[in-house]
């Protein structure tokens, strides 16, 4: 069960940290409609994270979902590092979101046939939400890429900057192999082909070029992160940590 717990935390943390980042957009969107959309996506991701952490709490039996979210240090967080990257400008956020949404879509499609009923159910619910998120981020990427010269240059830069974080989507470590063998987990390596197809098509529609695969960041499966995560957690976790006996 400990393996499933760890596997669940990885998925949960990825949603949680991306949700926390997206929520920073609230009241800062380029239009009111877009402000609402970004909050909506953030809320969906918090909902997914919450469901997964509830499941983690059920497995663990000693901690609550909130304990997992608010009482772990950064070395015990396992989110993909792309999620903790700063929002930057709207184009930076949309590029990050598009790359993640494409991955989420393919990942949850596979996870929905997991032998673990809880993970399969969460995956099935998430697919519906992610399909909408992907349509949204894809359309924005095309709009920005094929909009003005300025917007094209901006999102090209966004893509170049964040590309090195995409390698983590497809990594397989010992735990992934174990989960795959038990028909619980997903074969991340197999997601790459379809991910490439979708990404290449959208980048071409958006008139931006795909960066070369060179150095790729790694380490989140072992709780290694960029320095950005620690500060996010410090902010996010401050109240429950400062008042450990309080209920809110």
């Amino acid at each position: 069960m400990k393996d499933i717990l760890q596997y669940t935390l990885r998925i949960a943390d990825t949603s949680l940290i991306l949700a926390q980042r997206l929520s920073e957009w609230c009241s800062k969107g380029p239009t009111l409609e877009e402000d609402i959309a970004l909050s909506n996506i953030s809320l969906d991701l918090f909902g997914q994270a919450n469901g997964l952490l509830e499941y983690a709490a059920k497995i663990d039996q000693s901690k609550s979902a909130d304990d997992f979210a608010f009482k772990r240090d950064e070395r015990n967080f396992y989110n993909l590092q792309i999620c903790e990257q700063e929002n930057g400008h709207f184009g930076d956020t949309m590029v990050r979101q598009f790359l993640c949404d494409t991955y989420f879509m393919l990942f949850y499609q596979q996870l929905s046939s997991s032998k673990d009923e809880n993970l399969a159910a969460i995956a099935n619910k998430s697919i519906k939400e992610v399909a909408y998120h992907l349509r949204h981020s894809k359309n924005w990427l095309i709009r920005l890429g094929d909009g003005t010269k300025e917007s094209n240059l901006k999102v090209q830069k966004s893509l170049d900057k964040v590309w090195k974080f995409t390698g983590e989507f497809f990594e397989m470590d010992e735990l992934d192999h174990l989960m795959l063998d038990e028909k619980i987990g997903v074969n991340n390596t197999l997601l790459k082909k379809e991910w490439d197809n979708i990404v290449n098509q959208v980048l071409s529609d958006a008139k931006i070029s795909r960066p070369k695969d060179s150095y790729m960041m790694t380490g989140s499966k072992r709780g290694l992160h960029t320095e950005l995560l620690g500060k996010m957690l410090a902010e996010m976790q401050y109240l429950p940590r400062a008042y450990p006996n309080a209920k809110w």
Binding site: C26, S27, S39, N40, F46, L239, P240, A246
Partner: peptide, 22 residues
């Protein structure tokens, strides 16, 4: 929003602020 003390509190607050935008 970034400092809400529980997941539930965070989702309620974010949804509320989103309602205000609406």
């Amino acid at each position: 929003i970034s400092r809400a003390p529980s997941l539930r509190a965070k989702m309620i607050l974010l949804a509320k602020v989103q309602d205000e935008a609406g």
